[in-house]
Amino acid sequence: MADLEELYREIILDHYRSPRNRGELESPPAHRVEGFNPLCGDEVVISLLVEGGKLADLKIGGSGCSISQSSASLMSSAVKGKPLEEVRQLIHTFKGMMSIHGAQLGQDDEPVEAEEINLEKLGELAALQGVVKFPVRIKCATLSWNALAQGLDEMADQAS
């Protein structure tokens, strides 16, 4: 069961059992964005509050498997309070980690070179690295990240 333990690391189980930043922010002023995985029915609802070029606050709702929910929780901890540029960079790095093996499996993200990915930069998020060995679950791990990226895009569009 070595593979399983690599997938379900303690930190992932911890975030699954005790998800951080759970809930919803009043919208407006917060921006609300949803992500669905039609294959398995997992869903994530993210409320984003941007102030002064920073992601001042975010809350996560929705339900799904341990990978999708822990990834959303880990993401919320990693991006909360960060400047938007840094958030976007983190999304890019995280999705890069997920697409090293997934690129040939029809992932539409631009492939990221392995050397670009600095696992140290990912901190706790690196725990989700084990997911790439289970290609079907990559979409679970990236669900909230795609929703976050979409939310940031929507807000940028509204602002321009």
Binding site: M1, D42, G64, C65, S66, F134, R137
Partner: peptide, 28 residues
């Protein structure tokens, strides 16, 4: 335990089951 996690663990035992909504969302 979410069905996808059940199925993932079962796979390690060689057990093939189907997790999900089984194309019957109104029933789910």
């Amino acid at each position: 335990v979410h069905a996808h996690d059940l199925a993932q663990v079962l796979d390690q035992f060689g057990v093939c089951v189907r997790p999900g909504h089984h194309c019957a969302k109104p029933l789910m």
